[in-house]
Write a protein that binds this DNA or RNA. Structure first.
Lengths: 217, 217
DNA sequence: TTGAGTCTGTAACTCAAGTTACCAACTTAA
DNA sequence: TTAAGTTGGTAACTTGAGTTACAGACTCAA
């Protein structure tokens, strides 16, 4: 009974986020084959050396997608929010690439995992699925270009401001709950650099700094 | 008659490059609706503020895809070679984005332009087209990640070497026919920096420098 | 309340890379 | 052949950002 209620709730969430874009028959299919996964904040979902067998649809919460190279250097690529999927799941796991992508939950997150075999048939069968997948690809490419822009054309202080704005948009209370070290990690720089730049921003009156917190003003 | 021979030749090229991946019916469709375009080296194809109405299949030659921002800063993203298409065509032209992508021919190039309306029906109808489009997206995302890696994790001298290797791979004679200024433009740095780094590489015996030419050793 | 661990601030230094400036060599058109 | 434009070499300087080092403040568990 309780289990039934839980499933009901998840189906509601599914309809809430995807009901307007997927046709009813596809929603039923997703209910039928999708596997619901609840993941606590801060969990690393994909250590993508392993092969990926399913595609995540985000029901609630936020994932961050990061790039890491062999030496452990890392860089935030973009966020995945509810109603979205990770087009890169496919891209990065079909081929054997040296460097890799990791996905980490930024908050408690609920996902529906779709077995990758369904991709093929759904793409042929459901127009709405086709559109969804294409739009997802387009969205990710747009995000990646945005990232390229930032690291190629902006200086660190500008990147930091962009990061803070994005992060504050995503956060529920509008406050960035991160240590300087964590911010440095996501922007691929050092803690000292971030502390220095944040301090400058604070002096300009753009932000306020507290322990484990940054607030945009 | 002469015109007929030309069409024959193009169809041969089409089959040569795509015959093994597309089913016969799709090849016929492409012949029927595709428009052949010959473009001289160095031509800018897409000033992507305008809306894009067709998707290019590369029959021969090479295109470079570059990112440009408002201030005219630019950066090479990747190359498109024969047998490939630009998945970004869609991505970057559907939405109105501030910064943009441009495509420039790196050599004399022949393209077949596919009207974008066909996308929808072909994707439903032809499995090989679906696969082609997905693989194309995946390939582009992979390329973009490679670019992100380079600018995020590598120093300029390492990026330069990577660039020279890639460029020499693509070039017919294995020689990089570029001025230092042009290289600087594609790597988004200044001519002086490139000259300096090239000179160092030459002293190490890794390359030889001539006017308008760099040769990898 | 003490001590270990974490987080932030700051100074001093180094280095890669961007900038300015100027010259020499080559190319091309007048 | 001369003059103007293009290309490449080099020096001198500036700057953004990465590094090392250390200290003070906070947190939490023993």
């Amino acid at each position: 009974m309780h289990f039934g209620l839980y499933i009901e709730l998840m189906i509601d969430k599914l309809k809430e986020n995807y009901g307007s874009i997927f046709e009813a028959a596809l929603i039923s299919e997703i209910e039928r084959v999708g596997i619901i996964k609840e993941v606590a904040s801060g969990t690393q979902l994909m250590h993508i050396g392993q092969y990926i067998k399913s595609m995540p649809l985000v029901l609630s919460g936020t994932l961050k997608i990061m790039r890491e190279d062999q030496e452990g250097d890392s860089l935030l690529l973009y966020y995945l929010e509810r109603g979205e999927t990770c087009a890169m799941t496919l891209s990065c796991c079909l081929g054997n690439q040296k460097s890799e992508i990791i996905a980490v939950t930024e908050s408690d997150t609920i996902l529906i995992m779709i077995p990758i075999e369904k991709m093929e048939s759904w793409t042929a069968q459901f127009k709405s699925w086709r559109n969804f997948v294409f739009e997802s690809y387009n969205h990710r490419i747009k995000d990646l270009l945005e990232t390229v822009d930032s690291i190629a054309f902006l200086k660190m202080d500008e990147r930091l401001i962009k990061y803070l704005e994005e992060k504050s948009r995503i956060s529920e209370d509008g406050i960035i709950h991160k240590t300087h070290q964590e911010i440095a990690y996501e922007l691929h720089t050092s803690r000292v650099v971030i502390s220095r730049l944040l301090k400058t921003l604070e002096k300009k009156g753009a932000i306020s700094i507290e322990r484990n917190k940054v607030k945009l003003l």
